[in-house]
Amino acid sequence: MDAAISAAASGPAPATDAPPYMSVQRVQKIYETAGGAVEAVSLADFSVTSGEFVAVLGPSGCGKSTLMMMIGGLETTSAGHIRVDGTEVTAPRGDFGYVFQDATLLPWKSVLDNVLFPIRLEHGRTRDHLDRARELLELVGLWDFRDKRPRQLSGGMRQRVAICRGLINDPKLLLMDEPFSALDAISRDDMNAALADLWDRYHKTAIFITHSIREAVYLADRVLVMSRRPSVISHDVRIPFPRPRRMEMQETAEFNEICGFLRRKIEEGYQRA
């Protein structure tokens, strides 16, 4: 089974003449610290096609968050190039949407105003985006909470608001850095289902950082396994399940086989280190 999966999975994305939507080319990140140079990302090299949902899976400290920050233009690269939609990423961009590990909502703004915050910063008229905000909040079941303040919501609700905020300006690329890692297991399942629903509807290109194998397999079209020391992408696994995806899918033998395969690959990474 392992062999079958890796055969289907490894290797670059299907060869086409068109350049990929996003390409990460031999990217490296080295931090200069007092104790010497620290390699946060040793080598990352992959590409993503438009509309693909890619999960980056790895243990903590493997550099996956740093990788996302570089893709998002929030961190500089030490070497290599990142291109999205034909241009090199050098700074945060308007066609990106960001969701971080903590919801990072403004505590003094209502749920609705938090969702509209990116529009407000772009000097856009928030009125024009009200319909979209409503659509997003309704999709995640929070429209009735639009006037509440973040502290009145649960952790899962706050993170749903943050996802709506990430989608409000209709980004082409959604970057999510372990958005559900602070949630308990049950809210996490809910959030995965909510995100899968959003996906079926909007079909954005997405980079999703996680250390949960099941989450990665459930959500993604493709899982990149990242190892620690050296911090490289060790496996590139295609997830064959059709969409829309259902929670029950997680109980199938195939789902669990893929999870097991990924777990072994992550463990191999540990043993090497």
Binding site: G72, L74, P92, R93, Y98, F100, D102, L106, P118, L121
Partner: peptide, 14 residues
Amino acid sequence: VDRDLLRLCRALRA
């Protein structure tokens, strides 16, 4: 101010 909020501002190009 929470550093995460400042990072959000940076991401949103404020």
